[in-house]
Nucleic acid binder design. Structure first.
Lengths: 230, 230
DNA sequence: CGCGGCTTTGATGTTCATCAAGTAAAGTGG
DNA sequence: CCACTTTACTTGATGAACATCAAAGCCGCG
């Protein structure tokens, strides 16, 4: 599972890695193969096993990348925010998706034809280099987060995920959890019951305030301590 | 932790992804910045936090990529075999290593100056594309293996790792474990005691034969069943 | 309104880490 | 080369962390 970094400051794909390396002609070329697609919360963008034809860039919203195990249980690999490169994980090494992608909030994508992107890599090596750097950064981050979470006990994982949403996604102490308790469990590898139990403990300890999906972080320092301690 | 695929059939780096995409001139260019370095079993090739100056390609031997947690416990991210691209994980996204690398068998590396490799990417976009595909493949595999192992109970993990060495590394039912019991524990996230305990159980159940580090797989089917069942 | 899904709490059981203690093997220095 | 020390290996007993099971309240939606 993973949390990508918000590495690109610009407004969209073009304003970030592409814009830096592409010529005006090449940008126009990209414009031709670009479409914008909206997905409602809950909708599935692609299924594990589907053929990869497109390169997705999330403009707006929030999605989860996940796999389903043999007991039909979902395991979230990563949550992706705007400017993260969805599908960067297997787009260039596989012909078929190795995981599924679903919107956990209403989302808007820039969708590019994958062949056009690949052509562009061969046409413009600076673009290729930028892509290499970004793929590396994302996967590195996926692996690091997994590593960090594995070392933590359940309370530490819940603290970690709360800080993640509070700081990285919503940048506020007060936010609405986009995930159900069950999905949180799938994200950090524990049972729904324990997610609830620990959230309740945090509430009783005055660390957070809960009203359904509304969460307010009351004691950020404590949360950080719990997260670090594991 | 991870097991890379032996994706490159050739004799060395040049015979695989580079050779396909480089001109003779470019190959000579690479020859100039290439050195060969040998490491004895147990030697550390690089430490987490070291500056990345080189691109390593394992010609011969076996190495482990690992991180050290705050209790000084090692966690193996991946075992790499010849033709795997050591250091492909952060070479292009970081200036410093995010993990350490150590030889678990006597090993020989081709070492390239990292700047030369990066220059080559910009010079030859086909090479860049090949690199993208390989980085993707490796990281994909790292993530997939982690995912698989996470779902398994201890017995399943031991079975998995025994099959891995038997089939992917040594391609024989009889082999010498290159890792200590402790290192196996670090590789699949469990305690040394339990590694020993479960190996003993497998021995009693006639699934394997153990003489120190010599392992013989007696009942491969059973091992596979245990691995899949988790 | 009633049904299914999400949430919550408590009780029970399993898996596994930790602790303890002892043996074997492998270095190390005199 | 042998005593000494350290490191690896092994087994059993205990306890902690967590999953599973069970049961009930809640909410939204057809």
């Amino acid at each position: 599972m993973e949390f990508h970094n918000p590495t690109f400051p610009g407004q969209c794909f073009f304003k970030s890695i592409l814009f830096d390396s592409l010529t005006p002609d090449e940008i126009h070329l990209m414009d031709d193969v670009k479409t914008e697609i909206k997905y409602k919360k809950g909708e599935i963008i692609c299924h594990e096993g589907d053929e990869i034809n497109s390169f997705y860039h999330l403009k707006n919203g929030l999605v989860k990348l996940y796999k389903v195990d043999k007991s039909d249980k979902e395991h979230i690999i990563s949550i992706a925010k705007p400017f993260d490169f969805i599908g960067l994980l297997s787009t260039f090494s596989q012909t078929h998706y190795q995981y599924s992608i679903a919107a956990i909030e209403d989302s808007v994508f820039c969708v590019f034809d994958i062949k056009a992107i690949k052509k562009l890599v061969l046409l413009n090596s600076k673009f290729g280099m930028a892509l290499i750097e970004n793929i590396s950064k994302i996967t590195e981050h996926v692996i690091n987060t997994r590593f960090e979470l594995n070392g933590k006990l359940l309370r530490g994982r819940i603290a970690y995920i709360l800080l993640y949403f509070s700081q990285n996604v919503y940048k506020s102490n007060h936010f609405e959890l986009p995930l159900s308790r069950k999905e949180i469990a799938e994200l950090i590898d524990m049972t729904t019951e324990n997610v609830i139990r620990i959230l309740s403990e945090f509430r009783k300890d005055q660390i957070i305030k809960i009203e359904g999906k509304q969460i307010r972080v009351l004691n950020e320092d404590m949360l950080r301590k719990i997260s670090v301690a594991g």
